[in-house]
Computed example of a mutant assay.
Amino acid sequence: MATGAVVGLAVYAISQTGGRFLFVITGAVAGAAVVIGADLYRRTTRLTEIKITVPQLSELTFVVNNDARHVSWQLFVETVTRVSTQRLNDDEGLLREALTSLYGLFATTRDILKASRPSVPPSSGMTVEYLAVMFLNKELRPFLAKWHPQLSEFEAAMPGSPESAWPQAAECRSELRQVQENTRSYVLAYARLAGVRDAEAMLGRRVSG
C-alpha cells in the first residue's frame, strides 16, 4: 500500500510538472528503459543450441546464452580443480580429504546457483542449472550420505588409526572412483556449455580403467 501511494504521488507530480523539468524526468525514464532493455538483450542474445550426452542422463539439448556460459564456466573451474575428477589410487591420498573436497564442491556448486540469475527454460531444451542440480542430487549427495557417517564413526571409534585399518576403505575407494568417473561427464558438459577448448587435456587421465 505504501509503495502504491508513493508511485501515485510521483505520477501525479509528474503530471503537474511542465517545462524543462518534465523533459528531464521523461529522459530519465527513457534512459532507464534503454538500460533495462539492453540488459535483457544481452542476456538473451547469442543463443546457442548444444547437444550433450551425459551417460547418467542420456542425451540432452541445451539452449545457452552469455549468462549460462558464465555459470557453466564457474562450475567447470570449481569441479575440474578438485579431487572429484582426479584419480586416487588405493595407495594415494586420504579418503577423509576426498570426502571433504566433495563436500566443498557440493557447497560451492549450490552457492554458484544461488548467486546466479535463474535461466528462463527454453521451449525445447535444458538449462545449466538443471544439469548442476542433477549432479548434486544423483552423484554427490548419495555418495556423501552413505560414506561420511561411516567414516566418521570409524574415526570416532578408532582415533589415530590409519584409514587402511577401516574395513570399508576399499569399498569406499571403489565407489569414489565411480563417482569421479561420473563427475568427469558433468565436467565435460560444463566445458561444452561454457565454450572451453581442450577440456579433456585439463582433466588429465581418466579416474577408472
Rank of each mutant, 00 (worst) to 15 (best):
V120E: 15
W166S: 02
L136P: 00
V54S: 03
V24Q: 13
R197N: 11
L57M: 05
T53L: 13
V11L: 07
E175F: 03
P167K: 02
G4P: 08
L88G: 01
R87K: 12
G19Y: 10
D91C: 02
P162A: 06
L94S: 15
V179R: 07
G31Y: 12
W73Q: 12
V83M: 15
Y190I: 11
N89Q: 11
A199Q: 08
S123E: 14
F21Q: 03
Y103C: 09
Y130H: 08
Q168A: 15
A194I: 04
V207G: 00
D67L: 03
A13T: 06
G195L: 10
V64L: 10
G37E: 03
F135D: 00
L131I: 12
T44S: 12
P162W: 06
A107F: 09
S72T: 08
Y190C: 10
V63T: 12
A199I: 09
M134D: 10
F135N: 02
Y186M: 05
R184C: 03
L9I: 08
T127W: 12
T44D: 07
N137F: 05
W147M: 02
A132H: 04
L193G: 08
G204D: 08
Y12V: 10
V71G: 02
T26G: 14
E129K: 15
D67R: 10
G93A: 01
P159T: 01
T108H: 12
D91V: 10
V54M: 06
L105K: 11
A13H: 04
G204K: 09
V77N: 05
A189N: 04
S161D: 13
K146I: 01
S124C: 11
Q178M: 08
V63K: 04
R206P: 01
K138T: 01
V133I: 12
E129Q: 15
E181D: 14
L60V: 04
F106Q: 12
L75F: 07
L151S: 12
L140H: 06
L102F: 12
A132F: 09
A38W: 09
A107P: 02
L176R: 01
P167S: 08
S164H: 02
R46Q: 06
W73L: 12
T45K: 14
M158F: 12
G37D: 06
Y103M: 08
E97K: 15
V63D: 03
A38Q: 09
L57E: 02
M126V: 07
S185G: 05
R96P: 00
V128P: 02
L99I: 04
P149S: 07
E175S: 04
G37S: 11
V7L: 14
Y12E: 10
L57P: 00
A165W: 05
V63I: 15
I25R: 05
T45S: 15
S164E: 08
S101K: 08
Y190V: 14
A32D: 05
V29Y: 09
S119N: 11
V120M: 06
L57G: 01
V179F: 02
L140K: 10
P167H: 04
L105N: 09
L47Q: 13
V187S: 02
L40R: 15
